[in-house]
Amino acid sequence: MNRKEEMLTLVEQWRKSGLTRKSSANQHGLKSESFNYWCKKQYGEVEKVKADQRTYIR
Protein backbone atom coordinates (compact mmCIF):
# COMPACT_ATOMS: atom_id res chain seq x y z
CA MET A 1 0.00 0.00 0.00
CA ASN A 2 1.47 3.37 -0.96
CA ARG A 3 1.44 6.45 1.28
CA LYS A 4 -1.65 7.96 -0.38
CA GLU A 5 -3.68 4.77 0.01
CA GLU A 6 -2.53 4.41 3.61
CA MET A 7 -3.51 7.95 4.52
CA LEU A 8 -6.88 7.80 2.79
CA THR A 9 -7.61 4.54 4.62
CA LEU A 10 -6.82 6.29 7.92
CA VAL A 11 -9.16 9.14 6.94
CA GLU A 12 -11.95 6.65 6.25
CA GLN A 13 -11.33 4.97 9.61
CA TRP A 14 -11.42 8.36 11.32
CA ARG A 15 -14.76 9.27 9.69
CA LYS A 16 -16.33 6.06 11.01
CA SER A 17 -14.74 6.31 14.46
CA GLY A 18 -16.47 9.37 15.87
CA LEU A 19 -13.12 10.71 17.14
CA THR A 20 -11.88 14.22 16.53
CA ARG A 21 -9.27 14.69 13.80
CA LYS A 22 -6.69 15.59 16.44
CA SER A 23 -7.39 12.47 18.50
CA SER A 24 -7.21 10.24 15.46
CA ALA A 25 -3.96 11.85 14.31
CA ASN A 26 -2.43 11.37 17.76
CA GLN A 27 -3.57 7.74 17.83
CA HIS A 28 -1.64 7.06 14.62
CA GLY A 29 1.40 9.17 15.50
CA LEU A 30 0.65 11.85 12.90
CA LYS A 31 0.86 15.61 13.12
CA SER A 32 -2.59 17.21 13.21
CA GLU A 33 -1.67 19.46 10.27
CA SER A 34 -0.69 16.47 8.12
CA PHE A 35 -3.85 14.59 8.97
CA ASN A 36 -5.97 17.67 8.21
CA TYR A 37 -4.25 17.93 4.81
CA TRP A 38 -5.20 14.35 3.96
CA CYS A 39 -8.78 14.84 5.16
CA LYS A 40 -9.13 17.85 2.86
CA LYS A 41 -7.40 16.00 0.00
CA GLN A 42 -9.80 13.07 0.32
CA TYR A 43 -12.77 15.43 0.38
CA GLY A 44 -11.51 17.08 -2.82
CA GLU A 45 -11.15 13.72 -4.52
CA VAL A 46 -14.67 12.70 -3.52
CA GLU A 47 -16.06 15.96 -4.88
CA LYS A 48 -14.16 15.47 -8.16
CA VAL A 49 -15.68 12.00 -8.59
CA LYS A 50 -19.15 13.38 -7.91
CA ALA A 51 -18.62 16.13 -10.49
CA ASP A 52 -17.40 13.58 -13.03
CA GLN A 53 -20.46 11.42 -12.39
CA ARG A 54 -22.77 14.38 -12.92
CA THR A 55 -21.03 15.10 -16.22
CA TYR A 56 -21.57 11.55 -17.46
CA ILE A 57 -25.21 11.44 -16.38
CA ARG A 58 -26.22 14.49 -18.40
Results as ranks from 00 to 15, higher is better:
Gln53Lys: 04
Val11Asp: 05
Thr55Pro: 00
Tyr56Gln: 11
Asp52Gln: 08
Thr9Asp: 15
Thr55Trp: 05
Gln13Cys: 03
Val11Leu: 02
Leu30Tyr: 15
Met7Arg: 04
Leu30Cys: 09
Arg54Asp: 08
Glu12Gly: 15
Val49Gln: 14
Tyr37Gln: 06
Val11Phe: 01
Tyr37Pro: 05
Lys40Thr: 11
Arg54Lys: 14
Leu19Cys: 09
Lys41Met: 02
Ser17Phe: 08
Gln13Gly: 11
Trp14Arg: 01
Lys48Trp: 07
Gly44Glu: 09
Arg58Tyr: 12
Gly44Val: 04
Thr9Pro: 04
Lys22Glu: 02
Glu12His: 15
Arg15Cys: 04
Trp38Gln: 12
Gly29Ile: 06
Cys39Thr: 15
Val46Gly: 02
Ile57Trp: 05
Phe35Tyr: 06
Ala25Val: 13
Ser23Ile: 12
Thr9Gly: 05
Lys31His: 15
Phe35Asn: 07
Glu45Gly: 07
Gln53Leu: 12
Tyr43Gly: 03
Phe35Pro: 05
Lys16Asn: 05
Asp52Ser: 02
Ser23Glu: 04
Ser17Gly: 11
Asn26Met: 02
Asn26Cys: 05
Lys41Tyr: 14
Ser32His: 13
Arg3Tyr: 03
Ala51Ile: 07
Glu47Arg: 03
Gln27Ala: 00
Arg58Pro: 04
Lys48Cys: 00
Glu12Leu: 14
Leu30His: 13
Ala51Asn: 09
Gln53Glu: 14
Phe35Ile: 01
Thr9Met: 02
Ile57Phe: 02
Gln53Val: 14
Val11Trp: 09
Thr9Leu: 14
Asn36Ser: 05
Met1Phe: 10
Tyr56Ala: 10
Ser17Thr: 10
Ser23Cys: 09
Leu10Phe: 12
Thr9His: 11
Tyr43Ser: 13
Gln27Arg: 01
Gln42Val: 06
Leu8Tyr: 11
Asn26Trp: 03
Thr55Ser: 01
